[in-house]
Amino acid sequence: MSSVDTYFKNIGKGFWTVLLGMKVTMRHLFTPAVTIQYPDARMPIPERGRNRLYVNMDDCIGCNQCGMACPVGCITIETAKSLPTEDLGVTSTGQKKRLWVTQFDIDFAKCCYCGLCVPPCPTECIYMTDVFEFSEYDRDKLNYSFITLTPEEAAQKTEQAKAAEKEAAAKKAAAAAAAAQKAAQTQNAAQPNAQPNPPSAPKPAPSVAPTPQPAPAGAEAAPVSSVTADPQGSKTASSPENVQPPRPQEQAAQAPQELKTNDNPKGSAD
């Protein structure tokens, strides 16, 4: 008997729940839609919306804090030291700019819009905007260059910084040689291998200053500080790469030592 009971009960329940469901859908047939007609109407993007990054180059001091914070390495910055005669002005936060930013590329094909690059910026010049419609058919076009210098200017600045560096290196080498000579003179009870680095003549265009040199002053940091966060990306952009001889891997790995901060996560990433 009970199975007959459940048989009819199931049929009844089936019908009833179907009708209940039909009631719900019928009610929604007459409720206004919640969707909007996208290109005509748009959802307001909240103030904090994290979309395309923008860099206000007027304020950028080329410190590469954002590039180091980036977890995917989509920001590529190269700087060239300005000559003492040049005045680059100050940022809106009152910081003096010392470096020519010769490359500032953000590859939005790689960017994950996490926003980690925004807080470290000392001058608040990198921030996220509300632009989110910037699809491209060509991936290379997503590599945005933010520099204000023209490529020629950027090349010139790099060249000039390199020349200054060469000069400084030559001066340094000469000073070192002089010091060594002096040392050799004072200690004539000679040990033949007392000189750690034979003061050779300045080599033509060493892009990285040889590290073991006892630099006389700390201010003589590397004139060309270069962080290649992503080697691929930098090739695609209009970069002054061609003027600079490509550096071997291990030298690139040493490069962080010459940076202002020594914890570059990307230097040895590849």
Binding site: P46, E47, R48, G49, R50, C114, L116, M128
Partner: peptide, 20 residues
């Protein structure tokens, strides 16, 4: 989105605090 700016991948909680 109004809190942290993203709709799916938030990066909202940071070690020691929150982004906003």
């Amino acid at each position: 989105e109004m809190t942290c700016g993203a709709r799916l991948l938030y990066n909202y909680m940071w070690p020691g605090g929150l982004s906003h």
